[in-house]
Design a protein around this nucleic acid. Structure first.
Length: 278
DNA sequence: ACAATATCCTGCGAGC
DNA sequence: TGCTCGCAGGATATTG
């Protein structure tokens, strides 16, 4: 479900709810989501500690605790956080982890159970294999055409596939890859190495503007994303191609096509994004 | 080294 | 109505 804008909004929501909260208990009903510790160890790291900082690193959520431990959470397809009163009822089937505070709980809800949790130390969490391989954030100052070019100019794989690779750029997923390539007029199957420096500039510029615009709209809710209980994003109303199969292209009215690129559903305008000549 | 495929899960809508 | 199939915003292990 969530890509960079959605994770950013979730992080901002978490900052307003859990910072300063002391964890009095942790309940784990699906142990497999804890990836690098036993449930017992996981609880021992967290209980009695206070949330001091929450950051986004790519699509990961990084919670810093008062004991210099770091909780790294990935929502994958369906993960959600709900900060609720202890007395509020919750969905026992889909709430996999609860962080219990004095008067409230942070509930991790994940219907497909793909989400992950890791615990690391403050000094070495960025060296953990999940985070160490991540590329630059597209919203960072250093991200631009030359950075992209260094990563893309030697590979023949489809540009859409490359944009989904978190070691090329961190945070883009299936929705925004389609929207960015449409804004650039680039066919999603174009071999990355066939792109010009002008294309690289266009990708960098459109990635930044589309992701920022989505953040302003609190992300995209297609089926299930909520940044808090009962609160959906609205950027789905601004999507130009993703989910728009057979609908008219906003630029030229040609029917939007849906194809598979590397197994992922991919939407594009066959007129504005011409098939590359190989 | 790279690229395509399978896999982890559940739920939903389409089509029969 | 009720079944089966395909698909879903992600990432990684496995295979060729």
């Amino acid at each position: 479900m969530p890509e960079l804008p959605e994770v950013q909004i979730v992080v901002e929501e978490l900052r307003s709810s859990v910072l300063g909260q002391k964890i009095v208990d942790v309940a784990v009903t699906v142990p497999k989501v804890i990836k690098n510790a036993s449930v017992r160890a996981f609880k021992s790291y967290l209980v009695g500690e206070t949330f001091r900082r929450v950051d986004r690193v790519g699509k990961y959520i990084v919670f810093h605790l008062s004991n210099r431990k770091v909780l790294v959470s990935h929502l994958r397809m369906e993960g959600k956080y709900f900060f609720e009163a202890k007395t509020d009822p919750y969905d026992r089937r889909h709430v996999l982890v609860r962080f219990v505070f004095a008067d409230a709980e942070l509930r991790y809800h994940d219907t497909r159970r793909f989400g992950t949790f890791y615990v690391y130390g403050e000094s070495d969490y960025m060296e953990a294999k999940e985070l160490s391989k991540l590329a630059l954030d597209p919203l960072s100052e250093k991200f631009g055409a030359s950075y992209l070019s260094a990563r893309l100019s030697k590979t023949r794989r489809a540009i859409k596939t490359a944009l989904l690779d978190q070691t090329v750029v961190a945070g883009i997923g299936n929705i925004y890859a389609d929207e960015i390539l449409f804004a650039c007029g680039i066919h999603p199957k174009t071999p990355a190495a066939a792109l010009t420096m002008g294309h690289m500039r266009a990708i960098a510029k459109n990635a930044r503007s589309i992701l920022k615009d989505s953040i302003r709209h609190k992300g995209t809710t297609i089926a299930s994303y909520l940044f808090k209980k009962d609160h959906a994003g609205s950027f789905q109303n601004k999507l130009k191609v993703h989910t728009k199969a057979k609908r008219p292209c906003p630029g030229c009215a040609t029917a939007i096509a849906k194809i598979k690129v590397n197994g992922r559903g991919t939407y594009f305008c066959p007129n504005c994004q011409r098939e590359p000549r190989c």
